[in-house]
Simulated assay, not measured.
Amino acid sequence: MPLNILFAARPERWTEYEAPLHKALSDAGIDGYTLSMDLPADQVDYIIYAPNSPLQDFTPYTRAKAVLNLWAGVEGIVRNETLTQPLTRMVDDGLERGMVEWVTGHVLRHHLGTDAHVLGQDGTWRHEVPPLAKDRPVTILGLGALGGACAEALVYLGFPVTGWSRSRKNIAGIACLSGDAGLPQALCTAQILVLLLPDTPQTENVIDADALARMPAGACLINPGRGPLIDDDALLAALDDGHIGHATLDVFRTEPLPPEHPYWGHPKVTVTPHIASETRPDTAAQVIAENIRRGEAGEDLLHLVDRDLGY
């Protein structure tokens, strides 16, 4: 029986992914397959999926062995009651390296006070020397694949890094905290805070007024994770009263961020348009192909989503 693989994403993504997927499938030793955006539902073996696809009802896909998500985030699909097939999320080298570069760049920007020099060339000589990295504690909330990689990169640069996660992690060189008791401790030293948690009911508004108040005065917040992690009103209030020195935000509750949103014009907020990390077709195709190979060989799939946890 031929292997049928459905590509369920927007048409422009098919243009980007068609050639890399064929190459990756060939490299993985998979042949005799059909890869298409148009296949009879009851004949599909694997669904390569983007949550913004028109496909939202998985009931007809009775033969499908797995749904292979193209996005790192699965909040747009994991609660879909029609989805009973195994679900995987995207963890690939291109997405990871992109996140490490973006996070490292903005941590260094805030650490060095780069904005003051780039934006403040007013003829005044301000001899303000930044501390060394060893004297600038950084906290990362979320120690999954992306958070762990960012933490390791910052440790390599000399920053003392504290990481927090729902369950206990052990990463060399990082002070790993976990659970409800560990979160206040992680926040109280965070001169720079990086948010890389998933979007779940448990993480919504994790950065609220109480959490912000626990951070050191003048701390900077960087969010390339998920918009709902932050109570926006609480953050704006903390920026206005000076307790939080700056926020660099890449993700938002509503995207694109509406033009009238106060973040756009706030002098202590940097908005970037959800560019911290992007799935790269070449590397993502390799992850997809490996999971299809594993599925056909009866092996465990990579990056399976825990439906109860939501990621």
Score class of each variant (00 low, 15 high):
Thr82Phe: 14
Ala284Thr: 09
Ala209Trp: 07
Trp71Lys: 10
Glu204Phe: 07
Tyr46Glu: 00
Tyr311Lys: 10
Leu70Ala: 09
Tyr311Glu: 12
Glu152Phe: 02
Leu301Ile: 05
Gln191Gly: 06
Gly144Phe: 13
Ile222His: 02
Glu12Pro: 03
Tyr311Leu: 11
Pro130Ser: 09
Trp102Cys: 00
Ile77Leu: 12
Ala28Arg: 01
Asp180His: 14
Trp125Asn: 10
Glu296His: 06
Ile77Phe: 12
Glu18Arg: 14
Thr248His: 06
Tyr61Arg: 05
Leu301Val: 07
Val269Lys: 05
His117Cys: 04
Phe159Trp: 03
Gly298Val: 10
Val107Pro: 03
Ser167Pro: 09
Pro2Lys: 13
Trp102Ala: 01
Glu81Tyr: 03
Pro256Met: 07
Asp135Lys: 11
Pro228Gln: 10
Gly123Leu: 05
Pro267Gln: 06
Leu239Glu: 04
Pro86Arg: 07
His243Glu: 11
Pro54Ser: 00
Ile207Lys: 02
Ala50Trp: 12
Thr114Trp: 11
Gln85Leu: 06
Ala28Phe: 07
Leu236Tyr: 02
Trp14Asn: 05
Tyr49Asn: 10
Asp27Phe: 03
Arg126Asn: 08
Asn205Ala: 15
Asp115Thr: 07
Asp57Gln: 11
Leu35Ser: 04
Val305Leu: 11
His274Cys: 00
His111Ile: 12
Pro137Glu: 11
Gly105Pro: 05
Leu187Pro: 00
Gly73Leu: 13
Thr279Glu: 09
Asp115Pro: 01
Ala28Pro: 00
Asn291Cys: 04
Ile244Ala: 03
Thr279Ile: 00
Ala237Asp: 14
Pro259Gln: 13
Ala209Lys: 13
Ala217Val: 15
Arg89Ser: 10
Ile207Ser: 02
Leu302Gln: 06
Leu302Lys: 07
Asp57Trp: 11
Leu70Ile: 08
Gly173Thr: 00
Ala234Thr: 07
Arg166Phe: 14
Thr189Trp: 03
Ala247Thr: 08
Asp115Ala: 14
Arg89Ile: 02
Arg226Gln: 10
Ile171Gln: 01
Gly163Gln: 00
Gly144Cys: 13
Gly182Gln: 11
Asp208Ala: 08
Arg294Pro: 02
Thr200Met: 11
Glu75Pro: 02
Asp93Ile: 13
Ser167Asn: 15
Glu12Asp: 13
Ala211Thr: 04
Lys65Leu: 13
Thr15Ser: 15
Gly98Met: 07
Gly158Arg: 12
Asp42Ile: 14
Asp93Glu: 15
Leu236Gln: 00
Asp240Gly: 13
Val138His: 03
Thr82Ala: 13
Leu157Lys: 10
Ala153Met: 01
Met1Asn: 14
Ser277Phe: 11
Val78Thr: 07
Thr34Trp: 03
Thr88His: 10
Met37Tyr: 08
Phe58Asp: 14
Val44Gln: 00
Thr82Asp: 14
Gly265Trp: 11
Ala213Trp: 02
Val103Cys: 02
Val100Phe: 03
Lys134Ala: 14
Asn4Tyr: 12
Val78Asp: 01
Asp208His: 07
Val103Gly: 04
Arg307Tyr: 09
Thr248Lys: 04
Lys169Asp: 09
Ala247Trp: 01
Arg79Pro: 02
Asp199Asn: 15
